[in-house]
Protein backbone atom coordinates (compact mmCIF):
# COMPACT_ATOMS: atom_id res chain seq x y z
CA UNK A 1 0.00 0.00 0.00
CA UNK A 2 2.81 2.42 0.93
CA UNK A 3 4.70 1.78 -2.33
CA UNK A 4 1.43 2.11 -4.19
CA UNK A 5 0.80 5.39 -2.44
CA UNK A 6 4.26 6.71 -3.24
CA UNK A 7 3.67 5.83 -6.89
CA UNK A 8 0.38 7.74 -6.69
CA UNK A 9 2.17 10.81 -5.39
CA UNK A 10 4.66 10.54 -8.28
CA UNK A 11 1.75 10.43 -10.71
CA UNK A 12 0.11 13.42 -9.01
CA UNK A 13 3.40 15.30 -9.42
CA UNK A 14 3.04 14.64 -13.15
CA UNK A 15 -0.49 16.06 -13.02
CA UNK A 16 -2.51 12.82 -13.09
CA UNK A 17 -6.08 13.49 -11.98
CA UNK A 18 -6.75 9.74 -12.01
CA UNK A 19 -4.09 9.30 -9.32
CA UNK A 20 -5.61 12.17 -7.36
CA UNK A 21 -9.01 10.45 -7.47
CA UNK A 22 -7.50 7.23 -6.18
CA UNK A 23 -5.68 9.11 -3.42
CA UNK A 24 -8.94 10.70 -2.27
CA UNK A 25 -10.81 7.38 -2.39
CA UNK A 26 -8.08 5.63 -0.45
CA UNK A 27 -7.51 8.15 2.32
CA UNK A 28 -10.63 10.26 2.70
CA UNK A 29 -11.98 8.13 5.53
CA UNK A 30 -8.80 8.42 7.62
CA UNK A 31 -8.44 12.17 7.06
CA UNK A 32 -12.12 12.95 7.63
CA UNK A 33 -12.48 10.81 10.74
CA UNK A 34 -9.33 12.39 12.23
CA UNK A 35 -10.67 15.87 11.56
CA UNK A 36 -14.18 15.02 12.73
CA UNK A 37 -12.85 13.87 16.09
CA UNK A 38 -10.75 17.03 16.32
CA UNK A 39 -13.41 19.52 15.32
CA UNK A 40 -16.73 17.86 16.14
CA UNK A 41 -18.57 19.76 13.40
CA UNK A 42 -18.68 17.30 10.51
CA UNK A 43 -19.09 19.94 7.79
CA UNK A 44 -16.12 21.97 9.09
CA UNK A 45 -14.12 18.76 9.24
CA UNK A 46 -15.03 17.81 5.68
CA UNK A 47 -14.21 21.33 4.54
CA UNK A 48 -10.71 21.02 6.01
CA UNK A 49 -10.39 17.50 4.61
CA UNK A 50 -11.02 18.90 1.13
CA UNK A 51 -8.44 21.62 1.77
CA UNK A 52 -6.03 18.89 2.85
CA UNK A 53 -6.46 17.11 -0.49
CA UNK A 54 -6.06 20.45 -2.29
CA UNK A 55 -2.63 20.76 -0.68
CA UNK A 56 -1.84 17.20 -1.75
CA UNK A 57 -2.72 18.18 -5.33
CA UNK A 58 -0.95 21.54 -5.40
CA UNK A 59 2.12 20.60 -3.37
CA UNK A 60 2.84 16.87 -3.84
CA UNK A 61 6.53 17.77 -3.60
CA UNK A 62 6.09 18.30 0.14
CA UNK A 63 5.79 14.50 0.48
CA UNK A 64 9.35 13.46 1.21
CA UNK A 65 8.73 9.72 1.32
CA UNK A 66 10.09 9.22 4.84
CA UNK A 67 6.63 8.42 6.25
CA UNK A 68 3.43 6.91 4.91
CA UNK A 69 1.19 8.97 2.66
CA UNK A 70 -1.56 8.64 5.27
CA UNK A 71 0.80 10.23 7.85
CA UNK A 72 1.63 13.01 5.43
CA UNK A 73 -2.06 13.72 4.77
CA UNK A 74 -2.87 13.63 8.49
CA UNK A 75 0.00 16.05 9.14
CA UNK A 76 -1.46 18.47 6.58
CA UNK A 77 -4.91 17.99 8.13
CA UNK A 78 -3.47 18.64 11.58
CA UNK A 79 -1.88 21.93 10.51
CA UNK A 80 -5.15 22.97 8.88
CA UNK A 81 -7.13 22.11 12.02
CA UNK A 82 -4.68 23.89 14.30
CA UNK A 83 -4.67 27.01 12.13
CA UNK A 84 -8.46 26.97 12.10
CA UNK A 85 -8.52 26.65 15.88
CA UNK A 86 -6.13 29.55 16.21
CA UNK A 87 -8.42 31.97 14.44
CA UNK A 88 -10.07 33.56 17.43
CA UNK A 89 -13.50 34.38 16.06
CA UNK A 90 -13.84 31.06 14.31
CA UNK A 91 -12.78 29.28 17.47
CA UNK A 92 -15.42 31.09 19.48
CA UNK A 93 -18.09 30.14 16.97
CA UNK A 94 -16.80 26.58 16.75
CA UNK A 95 -16.76 26.16 20.51
CA UNK A 96 -20.36 27.29 20.67
CA UNK A 97 -21.23 24.85 17.89
CA UNK A 98 -19.11 22.18 19.53
CA UNK A 99 -21.07 22.55 22.76
CA UNK A 100 -24.31 22.31 20.77
CA UNK A 101 -23.06 19.29 18.82
CA UNK A 102 -21.95 17.53 21.97
CA UNK A 103 -25.42 18.06 23.37
CA UNK A 104 -26.79 16.45 20.22
CA UNK A 105 -24.34 13.57 20.60
CA UNK A 106 -25.61 13.18 24.13
CA UNK A 107 -29.06 12.55 22.74
CA UNK A 108 -28.04 10.49 19.72
CA UNK A 109 -26.16 7.18 20.01
CA UNK A 110 -25.56 5.99 23.58
CA UNK A 111 -24.67 7.50 26.96
CA UNK A 112 -21.24 5.90 26.61
CA UNK A 113 -20.41 7.60 23.28
CA UNK A 114 -21.83 10.86 24.59
CA UNK A 115 -19.58 10.67 27.65
CA UNK A 116 -16.53 9.88 25.50
CA UNK A 117 -17.39 12.69 23.06
CA UNK A 118 -17.71 15.16 25.94
CA UNK A 119 -14.44 14.02 27.50
CA UNK A 120 -12.72 14.20 24.11
CA UNK A 121 -14.05 17.72 23.56
CA UNK A 122 -12.69 18.77 26.94
CA UNK A 123 -9.13 17.70 26.04
CA UNK A 124 -6.70 20.32 24.70
CA UNK A 125 -6.50 19.99 20.91
CA UNK A 126 -2.92 18.57 20.92
CA UNK A 127 -3.96 15.89 23.39
CA UNK A 128 -7.13 15.17 21.44
CA UNK A 129 -5.14 14.78 18.23
CA UNK A 130 -2.61 12.44 19.86
CA UNK A 131 -5.38 10.28 21.32
CA UNK A 132 -7.27 10.10 18.03
CA UNK A 133 -4.16 9.28 16.00
CA UNK A 134 -2.89 6.56 18.34
CA UNK A 135 -6.11 5.00 19.65
CA UNK A 136 -8.49 5.48 16.76
CA UNK A 137 -6.21 5.52 13.72
CA UNK A 138 -3.63 3.00 14.94
CA UNK A 139 -0.61 5.20 14.36
CA UNK A 140 2.42 4.46 16.51
CA UNK A 141 3.56 7.09 19.00
CA UNK A 142 6.52 7.87 16.74
CA UNK A 143 4.28 8.30 13.70
CA UNK A 144 1.90 10.53 15.68
CA UNK A 145 4.89 12.60 16.85
CA UNK A 146 5.90 13.05 13.20
CA UNK A 147 2.38 14.07 12.22
CA UNK A 148 1.94 16.52 15.08
CA UNK A 149 5.49 17.84 14.87
CA UNK A 150 5.88 17.21 18.60
CA UNK A 151 8.53 15.35 20.63
CA UNK A 152 7.87 11.65 21.14
CA UNK A 153 7.75 12.00 24.93
CA UNK A 154 5.14 14.72 24.69
CA UNK A 155 2.96 12.58 22.45
CA UNK A 156 3.27 9.59 24.78
CA UNK A 157 2.26 11.76 27.69
CA UNK A 158 -0.66 13.27 25.71
CA UNK A 159 -1.92 9.79 24.84
CA UNK A 160 -1.56 8.48 28.39
CA UNK A 161 -3.31 11.48 29.95
CA UNK A 162 -6.00 11.65 27.32
CA UNK A 163 -6.71 7.95 27.53
CA UNK A 164 -6.94 8.15 31.31
CA UNK A 165 -9.48 10.96 31.07
CA UNK A 166 -11.54 9.17 28.45
CA UNK A 167 -11.47 5.96 30.45
CA UNK A 168 -12.52 7.95 33.51
CA UNK A 169 -15.47 9.35 31.56
CA UNK A 170 -16.32 5.89 30.26
CA UNK A 171 -16.02 4.41 33.76
CA UNK A 172 -18.55 6.94 34.99
CA UNK A 173 -21.02 5.50 32.51
CA UNK A 174 -20.45 1.82 33.22
Amino acid sequence: MTDDDSALIDEIRDGSERAFNVLIDRHQQAVRSFLRRLLADASDADDLAQETFMVAWTRPGSYRGDASVRSWLCAIAWRKARDAQRAWFRRRAREARWARDVEQIAVAPSPESAAVARALAALPIEQRAAVVLCLMQDFSHAEAAGILGAPLGTVKSHVARGKARLLGALGGQV
Binding site: N21, I24, R32, D46, Q50, L120, L170
Partner: peptide, 28 residues
Protein backbone atom coordinates in the same frame (compact mmCIF):
# COMPACT_ATOMS: atom_id res chain seq x y z
CA UNK B 1 -12.46 -0.77 29.02
CA UNK B 2 -9.67 0.28 26.65
CA UNK B 3 -11.06 -1.96 23.94
CA UNK B 4 -14.51 -0.43 24.45
CA UNK B 5 -13.01 3.07 24.29
CA UNK B 6 -11.29 2.29 20.98
CA UNK B 7 -14.53 0.81 19.67
CA UNK B 8 -16.44 3.95 20.63
CA UNK B 9 -13.82 6.20 19.06
CA UNK B 10 -14.07 4.20 15.85
CA UNK B 11 -17.83 4.26 15.72
CA UNK B 12 -19.65 6.55 13.33
CA UNK B 13 -16.78 6.85 10.83
CA UNK B 14 -17.35 8.43 7.42
CA UNK B 15 -17.94 5.76 4.73
CA UNK B 16 -14.91 3.96 3.31
CA UNK B 17 -16.03 4.91 -0.20
CA UNK B 18 -17.64 8.29 -0.65
CA UNK B 19 -17.91 9.41 -4.29
CA UNK B 20 -19.77 12.54 -3.20
CA UNK B 21 -16.83 13.71 -1.10
CA UNK B 22 -14.48 13.04 -4.02
CA UNK B 23 -16.76 14.95 -6.34
CA UNK B 24 -16.96 17.91 -3.93
CA UNK B 25 -13.17 17.96 -3.72
CA UNK B 26 -12.83 17.91 -7.52
CA UNK B 27 -15.43 20.68 -7.85
CA UNK B 28 -13.42 22.73 -5.36
Amino acid sequence: DEARLVELLRSDLPPARDPLFRLDTLVR
